[in-house]
């Protein structure tokens, strides 16, 4: 729901970076969205198009990749994906803070991020 505000920050960063480097044109922006954010890639793209309109980065392509969350166990140091537990009655599974390897608890290492990885520009 806050894709508009977040995308404004993305656009501002790209504009700043591109003009600092005296870019003539921005070709592509590579964005990584963590699976623990609540950002919908389609909406980010939608806002990107609107917010870049009439700027010199209008028409640049926004490529979005998702990144899986990484957790670490505070007890056995397991590092990797969440463990999922099933709800047998509903046939759904839910992620849990329990370690997949031991009875310890995990903490979130990454997945809550929205990273501008790189910008392709012509100078």
């Amino acid at each position: 729901m806050h894709e508009g505000a977040i995308t404004r920050q993305i656009v501002d960063s790209v504009l700043k970076e591109a003009s600092n480097r005296k870019a003539k044109k921005v070709i592509e922006v590579d964005l990584l969205i963590g699976s623990l954010t609540f950002l919908n890639p389609e909406q980010v793209k939608f806002w990107y198009e609107i917010l870049t309109k009439d700027t010199f980065i209008e028409g640049s392509k926004l490529s979005i990749r998702g990144s899986e969350a990484v957790v670490r166990c505070t007890k056995c140091n397991y590092e990797g994906s969440f463990k999922y537990v099933d709800d047998p009655a509903l046939h759904v599974s839910m992620p849990t803070m329990q370690c997949p390897k031991c009875e310890g608890m995990v903490e979130i290492v990454s997945g809550k991020d929205c990273i501008i990885k790189s910008i392709r520009m012509s100078i």
Binding site: S13, R21, C114, I115, I116, K117, S118, R120
Partner: peptide, 13 residues
């Protein structure tokens, strides 16, 4: 003339 600028900027940070 095309450059890839590595930025690694987290906008939620």
């Amino acid at each position: 003339e095309v450059f890839d600028i590595e930025l690694e900027k987290d906008v939620l940070e």
